[in-house]
Design a protein around this nucleic acid. Structure first.
Length: 299
DNA sequence: GGTAGACCTGGACGC
DNA sequence: GCGTCCAGGTCTACC
């Protein structure tokens, strides 16, 4: 079955895929030679599908081997539209940055969108897995989590959907630690899953929240395991650009770009992007560092 | 409000 | 093969 999603305005499928490292994390899989992004999705009715996503004239093409009922097509369309941020109006951002040589490429290439997971639960959990560890370990923990607790894709055993909050909530901290090597993050992941499963924490409501960004940040930082870096990262995924996700990489790049390699502080990173005001998170994210080269994707 | 130390894992390195 | 060191944000206790 094939579904088409039309896109208004400048849009680059590859730029969205390569906007950050999410495409390297299961249940995403990227085929560089075919410019094809696949994602194993579990629908609300429990069906597990392999969605194949690619660029199409004027938008995005969704393909799956499964036949979808009319009632299933709508949530698939909505999920993919959310994943690619198709609801965002980037015109104000383009206007703000088009005269900056290090950012002009964003509009020129139809960039500015950040790849998301279908659910905010998945994005929050994955963000916790990026904290205080190396990228290789993030990928390993995420793969373990999915292989151990995700529902398998029929006829394709090795691939699984991202685990539901309910499935993770039913596990124990010891089981999580042992089967996924989450280390001290296990209590945070378990608490997140249990709060989401019980309804105590409505993570999907963050997607449509009208709270001011500063208030939304406070709400995010109430979640165990989410500190300043993780909150800023999640705000970016929600389309809020007022905060910079400052990690060790940000410190390194700002040091090299503006301070001759001398050590810098988070305040220095803030100062470097302060001129971009409400767009500073985006300005940081899409700044041309001339070294951004994700493995497996040449842009 | 600022700071120090603990939290875990796995890779790199030296022996 | 074993032991040690290190990188990576968040949390908590303390000043």
């Amino acid at each position: 079955m094939r579904l088409t999603l039309p896109v208004q305005g400048p849009f680059s499928f590859r730029a969205a895929v390569g906007s950050h490292g999410w495409f390297q994390l299961d249940p995403f899989a990227w085929d560089e030679s075919a410019s094809l992004l696949s994602y194993v999705m579990r629908l609300a009715d429990g069906r597990v599908l392999d969605l194949r996503l690619r660029a199409a004239d004027g938008g995005l093409l969704i393909e799956t081997d499964a036949k979808l009922a009319a009632a299933e097509r709508k949530p698939v369309r909505e999920a993919v539209a959310w994943m690619f941020g198709l609801e965002l109006d980037l015109a104000p951002f383009y206007a703000a940055v088009r005269h900056e040589p290090k950012l002009a490429h964003v509009e020129r290439n139809g960039g500015g969108r950040v790849l998301r997971s279908p659910t905010f639960f998945e994005d929050v959990l994955k963000t916790i897995l990026t904290t205080n560890t190396l990228w290789a370990a993030t990928k390993r923990m995420n793969s373990n989590l999915i292989a151990q607790f995700g529902e398998p894709l029929p006829a394709d055993g090795p691939r699984h959907a991202f685990p539901t909050p309910e499935r993770l909530a039913a596990s124990s901290e010891a089981e999580l630690r042992e089967r996924t090597r989450l280390g001290y993050r296990a209590p945070s992941v378990l608490e997140l899953a249990r709060r989401a499963a019980s309804g105590d924490l409505d993570l999907e409501a963050f997607k449509t929240s009208t709270l001011p960004t500063i208030e939304l940040r406070k709400e995010l930082m109430k979640i165990r395991g989410i500190g300043p870096y993780a909150a800023a990262n999640l705000l970016m995924l929600l389309g809020r650009s007022d905060f910079i996700p400052i990690d060790s990489w940000a410190l390194k790049m700002v040091s090299r770009e503006w301070h001759g390699g001398e050590p810098v502080t988070p305040q220095d990173v803030e100062a470097a992007f302060a001129p971009w005001g409400e767009w500073k998170g985006m300005a940081y994210w899409f700044w041309d560092w001339s070294e951004k080269d994700w493995e497996g994707l040449s842009l």
